[in-house]
Design a protein around this nucleic acid. Structure first.
Length: 118
DNA sequence: TAGGTGACGCGGT
DNA sequence: CACCGCGCCACCT
């Protein structure tokens, strides 16, 4: 199974104006313990150019920080542009803005993985 | 080949 | 709240 290709599929479905956590994406990829690999993949562009990296935050709602983007405030501005509030600490309220993916969506991803053999 | 390092997460102290 | 420790694993030294 191709973790990064699965990740790219998920990235296509993270809704505009919502965020997903590393762990959530790892889970949807079928590897619940591989949250570290999500960060690694984003850093190296392994999930493709189209992946909405700015919509990925930690399990506590923290943005990735200055190092991960071209400018220290890029992720924040990208999120705010889509209506996601980011507080002074560089954190988003997950209760409000986390992508609440449904079980049906998770199953749909599995079907996509299956039919594409990834 | 062994050991260290992360855009992480969870549990414990 | 802060700071461990551990699991995880692709990639470096």
């Amino acid at each position: 199974m191709d973790f990064y290709r699965r990740m790219a599929v998920i990235g296509d479905h993270i809704p505009y104006g919502k965020v997903a956590t590393y762990g959530q994406i790892a889970l949807l990829c079928g590897k619940p313990d591989n949250s570290r690999q999500i960060g690694y993949a984003l850093k190296r562009g392994k999930a493709g150019e189209d992946f909405p990296a700015h919509r990925v935050v930690s399990g506590q709602g923290n943005l990735s920080g200055a190092a991960a983007f071209a400018t220290p405030t890029l992720q924040k501005s990208l999120l705010e542009k889509e209506g996601v509030w980011v507080n002074e600490e560089g954190k988003v309220d997950l209760k409000k803005f986390r992508w609440q993916h449904t079980m049906a969506e998770a199953l749909a991803f599995n079907k996509i993985f299956e039919s594409n053999n990834i």
